[in-house]
């Protein structure tokens, strides 16, 4: 039983890490698309995507991470309830923020509004998913 629990925790951590990587890789891919395409997403996307390796490679990396994170998330959900698992996904917001700021190719600004906003959202996600009483379980 202990073994299963720790395996599920590893799956959950993987899922968080992979979903943050997915966001960052997809953003890098879209930055490449902007560099090589025009100002319009639709036109750029379908004409440039298969002509530019950087766009395609980062997109593939991002989508693979996304698919793997979804798979490990589902497997983790067979062991944990959503109310326990969801707050962990909140960690993804922090990882994406730090990655977007410190990864030079993305290079987004760190501002106090953004930091405070993300912290508030994180607190909110924990509160939304917190199971507060036995009564509630009876209702549900």
């Amino acid at each position: 039983m202990k073994k299963i629990e720790s395996n599920a925790m590893i799956l959950l951590s993987f899922s968080v890490l992979l979903s943050a990587c997915a966001q960052l890789f997809m953003k890098v891919s879209m930055i490449q698309l902007q560099l090589h395409g025009g100002t319009d997403f639709g036109a750029s996307f379908f004409f440039i995507i298969f002509e530019n390796n950087a766009v395609l490679v980062w997109l593939f990396a991002g989508l693979s991470c996304y698919a793997l994170s979804m798979l490990s998330w589902m497997l983790a959900l067979t062991k944990y309830e959503l109310s326990f698992a969801y707050p962990f996904l909140g960690i993804t917001y922090i990882l994406v923020y730090l990655g977007a700021v410190y990864w030079e190719q993305i290079g987004e600004q760190m501002t106090w509004q953004r930091t405070a906003g993300i912290i508030l959202i994180l607190i909110g996600v924990v509160f939304v998913n917190y199971k507060n009483s036995i009564k509630e379980e009876e209702v549900l």
Binding site: I123, V126, V128
Partner: peptide, 25 residues
């Protein structure tokens, strides 16, 4: 028509507050 406990509403308030800060950046 489910009964939603107070902590979840509080969470929603935090999320909405966080989103409105983010939207300004």
């Amino acid at each position: 028509h489910e009964i939603v406990p107070w902590n979840r509403w509080l969470g929603v308030v935090f999320i909405v507050a966080g989103i409105s800060l983010l939207a300004q950046t």
